[in-house]
Design a protein around this nucleic acid. Structure first.
Lengths: 241, 241
DNA sequence: GAGTGGTCTAGACCACCTC
DNA sequence: AGGTGGTCTAGACCACTCT
């Protein structure tokens, strides 16, 4: 009795791109030809088998390592991940885009605009030691006239140009993406009961389950903004794929 | 008075890897040397400027395109994204891992295990037309004895091996990742009030705001499972970076 | 048609890690 | 010490798309 056929199918004839190689590797993993936790052949061996350059195999395997399917270590080789930590990619659009993508009209109301010292928790999030005053902006975003998102934001006034933009005309959000472009930050999601203020703004009962997005943004040197978005009931955040 | 120095610093001396190039490109975007919506030089031009091969520039720019900072089109060239759709990557670990990573003991109780026909909404999610019976499993996950996650799952029985695993000993979740490895699916997040059953299982008041994770998984041909996780209050989902 | 990004190659060197 | 992945190069061809 011979072992299962087809464990190694030998050199391929047709030309293979890195996507084809990725697909073939994935197939071998899914069909358990290569078992979880197991070593797979070296890049060189695979390049030989597939009849392509090592760089092409490398590209395919790196892609799979990025998505958590493979674990690679120098010298140790490449293994099929034992506990596949799913990595999901989310797209976080600007609110206006999100609403208009649903075919609704976006509008917003600036509810509050005050310069004051934020709570310590927020200063801490922004990595600030001193108690500096920041611009506190509260905005309600509407879709077709219906309240959709309540935005609570603290903005570092030192990033503002001298005649500060009129945020009752231009949404803060959009001014930021256009002006303080592409900074780093982090994002967190949670569920929380609506506060009295949120309930009032979104026209829901207090305590209603709200989907919360919280974002902190820094420039290379200084903190820029902290924002908390409270989404009206029915909001769903979905992954691509 | 001369214009700002350093708009174009000319050929670099030291050796640059693709990460250094990515960083430099990002810097030029953040400092608005290259404005949002604007074209940046071609790969060839950049390779010349940085004194490296075009493939190295390509690697750097592709990375930035993947993270939504650049938009690339053949012939049209590479532009700085006008509306930066933030792409965030989430790691979705297995529940046990997540709890143990916080230094708590993970345990679980299988609350229910029935073979019956799921609601139409769930059949639809799984892309099934016929009304087939599926395995309905309800599990409560605990961290250090405290209820943490309520799991409501429908499982396609045809993916089970003949003596079905005893899910009161091995968590369904873990059996799945080990056995039906690496399938595709999609994930959605939302906030919802606790149902009577959820409230009871998680020991919270009914209507409490719960963070909900909903996942659908297919194999290449057949549906595998639909699962809804209700997280106890306090749960936060955070991006890397 | 021409310019751009997307990909592949064959070879090379290096950093890292296990043995 | 040696094998492995990570990266870079110089060159090439192709596919797409804007004009």
């Amino acid at each position: 009795m011979v072992p299962r056929p087809c464990v190694c199918v030998g050199p391929f004839k047709m030309k293979l791109g890195w996507e084809a190689i990725r697909a073939e590797v994935l197939r071998r993993i899914r069909t358990r030809i290569w078992a979880p936790g197991g070593l797979i052949p070296s890049e060189e061996a695979l390049a030989l088998e597939f009849g392509c350059a090592r760089a092409t195999v490398n590209r395919a395997l790196q892609e799979l390592a990025n998505s958590g399917v493979l674990e690679r270590k120098r010298k140790a080789g490449t293994r099929v991940a034992a506990l596949p930590v799913r990595k999901a990619t989310l797209e976080i659009p600007v609110i206006r885009q999100e609403i208009e993508a649903r075919g609704q009209a976006h509008s917003f109301r600036l509810l509050s605009r005050l310069l004051k010292v934020p709570p310590l928790a927020i200063l801490a999030r922004l990595g600030v030691q001193d108690t500096v005053a920041m611009l506190h902006l509260q905005t309600l975003h509407l879709a077709g006239g219906i309240p959709q998102v309540f935005e609570d934001r603290w903005l570092n006034p030192s990033v503002l140009p001298d005649p500060a933009p009129d945020f009752s005309i231009l949404s803060v959000n959009e001014w930021l993406v256009a002006s303080v472009a592409f900074s780093i930050g982090d994002i967190a999601f949670s569920a929380e009961p609506a506060s009295a203020q949120e309930a009032d703004a979104l026209a829901v009962g207090p305590g209603t389950a709200l989907f919360i997005t919280e974002r902190t943004t820094w420039a290379t040197d200084a903190p820029i903004t902290w924002v908390r978005l409270s989404h009206a009931p029915g909001y769903r955040l979905q992954t691509l794929l």
